[in-house]
Design a protein around this nucleic acid. Structure first.
Lengths: 347, 347
DNA sequence: CTGAAAGCGCTTACAG
DNA sequence: CTGAAAGCGCTTACAG
C-alpha cells in the first residue's frame, strides 16, 4: 500500500522536544494567539528543523473541514474556459490554504446527470464549490448543492441573482464600448453577428451593440444583424451573408472570437482584405484570435479573475459569521484588446 | 465555520442499529471478505436507509492515505492540453474512488519554482501524481517527487524511459501515415513545417515525414522543410515561404494544428484555394482546426486517453506489491482525422 | 499565557 | 464469520 509516512514526525514529537504541550504547538502552527514570543520561537525552530508538516487528514477530522474547494464544470464547456477558470481559482485557493478539486457533470439530452453529481457532493465533503455556467443556472443543480449544505458561489449567473453570491462582468457595457471604438475609427455601417438567444452573454453583447448605435443616432437595419451560435462555422456563413450586402458593411462585430474567425475566413475566401476593406472585431480574447491573420481585435473577458474572486468570496464565507453575508456580488473589469483586425475605413 | 456535518450519521450509529460491531460495518462498506450474506444485507439496508457516507478524513487518517491524485502542469501549457488531460484523468480517478487535485508549477527564466512545488508535495500528501511534459523531463522535478516518496507516472517523457512508468503515443508513425495519405491522394511535392527541435514530438513528426518520403523514393529538397515554433504565426510565414517556391508544393504538412492554421491564412492571403490548389494538413486535433475554413485534416493525439491510462497505472501501483512493477509503459493509439483541407491535386 | 483531557470517525492488528 | 481494543494526529472545549 502506498503510505504517506514521509517523516513520521508528529505534533507529539515536536511538543516533546520543545518541552511544551501539543496544544501550544498547535497554536504556533495555526498562528493562534496565546503563546509567548519566546515559546513560539523555540517551537517554530524545532518545526523547521524537522521540516514538520501537520497531517491534513487529522486536522480535517478534528476540525470537521476538508480544505477542499470544488470547481464544477459541465463537461461540454470549452477547454479554454476550463483552463482560465482553474488558473484563477488555483491562485486564490493556494493563498488561502485550500486545495482545488475538479469535477465535471455530464449532460445528456440537455439534462444533467444529477445522481452522479449528488454522489460527488456526498463523497467529497467540499467546504465549498464554485458553479460555472450553465450549471449555475440549473434549478436541480442549485437544489442539490443547497440540500447538501455546501457553500457555493456562482460565476456569471443568468437568473435569480439574489439566490447566492456571484461574480460577473458587464458584457453589455463592453460590447457598447467595442462598438463605439469602431464608430470613432470612422465606421458607420457596422454589422453584428449574434450568439444563441438563450445565452446571457450573447444577448447582453447584442444589446450593447444596439445601444451604442442608438446613441449615435443610427437605426440598425435588420439585415445588419446576422444570427450565429458562437461556433466558428456560423460566423463564416454570417460573414458571407454580410459581405453580400449592398452597400457592404465596413466593419463586422462578432459576438465571440470563434465567430469572428469565421468572418475572417469568409473575408479571405471572397478576397476582402482585412483590415483594409473590412474591419472585424470579436469578444472573449480566445487564444485562437492571436493565431489568426490579421490578429483579432477583441475584448478580454476576465475569466481567470472571476474564478479567483469566486474562490475568495467562498473562503471569506467560511470565516466569521458576522461578515459572512456581506459579500454577495462582485463585478470584474473587461479590457479592450486592440490588435490588427480593425482599422479606419479607406476611401 | 463551515462544517461538514451533513447527516451526523457515523459508523457507530449504523453498527448500533444493525446490532453488529463497527468492524462489520467497515467490512460491508469496503466490500471486504468476512461478513455473512445475511449480515451484509442487513447492514447495507441500514446504510442505504440513512444514506450514510463514510467520513473521508477519518478513513484517510487511519489508513494513512489521502485518496488524492495530483496532476501537475507547467503553468504555460495550453488550456486545450490541460483540459484534455483533466478530462481523461478524471474518468480514471473517479472509477477508482480517487479525487483529482490540480497543481501548477511556475516557470521563470526557464527554471521551475521548485520550492513552491516541494511545498505542495509536502502539504498535500498525494497518493500519487501524474507529471505532464515538460515537467516530466526535468531532473529537479523528478528528484523532488522521488525525495517525497510519492508514486508517479510520466506523460510522454523524452528522456530516461526506464526511470518511472509512463504513457506515450507514436508521433513518428502517425506523421509517416499522414504523409503517406497525401502521397496516396496523388501529391508528390509535399512540404513540411517543423516545430522546435528541443521538443520530442516535433522531432518525431518530422522524422515520420522524412521516412515516408524516403520510402517513396523521394529525396526531400532542403527548401521543402520550413522551420516553425508550434505557434500560428510561424506557420503563416512558413506558408508564405513555401508558396513562393517554384514549382510550388501541392501539399503542406504542418507539425501541429496551430501552424497549419497559419499556413491556411497565408494561402488565403495569396489567393491560393484550399484544398483545390493546395492541401494543408496538421497534427494534434486542436479545436481551432474545426473552426477553420476549410476544416483541418489532422491527426488526433489521444491526450485524454493518455492521462486516463496514466492514472490507471498509478492506481494499480497502489495495489498488491506483487503486481506493482509490472506496468511500466503504455502506448496509446492515434487516429487520422479526415476533414476538408486535403484533397487530390488538380490538373 | 499554557496545558490535560476528550474526541473527531474511521482502519489496523489481533483474538476468538 | 465476527468483534473488542487501540490508535491514526490533530482540534475543541475547558480549566487554570
Amino acid at each position: 500500500m502506498a503510505r504517506n509516512d514521509r517523516k513520521g514526525v508528529t505534533i507529539v514529537d515536536i511538543a516533546r522536544e520543545a518541552g511544551v504541550s501539543i496544544k501550544t504547538v498547535s497554536r504556533v502552527i495555526n498562528r493562534e494567539e496565546g503563546a509567548g514570543a519566546e515559546v513560539r520561537a523555540r517551537v517554530q525552530a524545532i518545526i523547521d528543523k524537522h521540516d514538520y508538516r501537520p497531517n491534513a487528514s487529522a486536522r480535517n477530522l478534528s476540525s470537521r473541514r476538508s480544505y477542499l474547494i470544488g470547481v464544477i464544470f459541465l463537461r461540454l464547456v470549452s477547454h479554454h474556459y476550463v483552463g482560465e477558470v482553474q488558473a484563477g481559482a488555483l491562485r486564490a485557493a493556494r493563498r488561502a490554504g485550500y486545495q482545488l478539486v475538479v469535477e465535471q457533470v455530464e449532460a445528456a439530452d440537455g439534462r444533467f446527470d444529477l445522481e452522479a453529481f449528488a454522489a460527488v457532493l456526498a463523497n467529497v465533503a467540499f467546504d465549498g464549490v464554485v458553479l460555472t455556467p450553465p450549471l449555475c443556472d440549473d434549478q436541480d443543480v442549485l437544489a442539490a448543492v443547497e440540500a447538501a449544505g455546501v457553500a457555493y458561489v456562482r460565476m456569471a449567473p443568468n437568473t435569480e441573482p439574489g439566490r447566492a453570491p456571484f461574480v460577473w462582468m458587464d458584457d453589455l457595457e463592453a460590447a457598447r464600448e467595442q462598438t463605439l471604438g469602431l464608430w470613432d475609427m470612422g465606421h458607420r455601417r457596422i454589422a453584428f453577428v449574434g450568439g444563441p438567444s438563450d445565452h446571457r452573454a450573447a444577448v447582453q453583447r447584442r444589446e450593447g451593440y444596439l445601444q451604442a448605435m442608438r446613441e449615435r443616432g443610427v437605426a440598425v437595419p435588420a439585415e445588419w444583424i446576422a444570427p450565429g451560435d458562437f461556433f466558428g462555422l456560423s460566423g463564416f456563413y454570417a460573414g458571407e451573408a454580410l459581405l453580400a450586402l449592398d452597400p457592404r458593411p465596413t466593419a463586422i462585430f462578432a459576438g465571440n472570437d470563434e465567430m469572428a474567425l469565421g468572418v475572417l475566413a469568409a473575408a479571405a475566401k471572397h478576397g476582402v482584405a482585412v483590415p483594409e476593406a473590412l474591419s472585424v472585431v470579436g469578444f472573449d480574447n480566445a487564444p485562437a484570435g492571436e493565431m489568426s491573420w490579421p490578429r483579432l481585435t477583441t475584448v478580454h473577458q476576465p475569466t481567470a479573475e472571476m474564478a479567483e474572486a469566486a474562490v475568495e468570496m467562498l473562503v471569506k464565507r467560511f470565516g466569521d459569521a458576522r461578515f459572512r453575508e456581506q459579500i454577495t456580488e462582485q463585478k470584474l473589469d473587461y479590457r479592450l484588446v486592440v490588435r490588427g483586425s480593425a482599422a479606419p475605413p479607406r476611401g
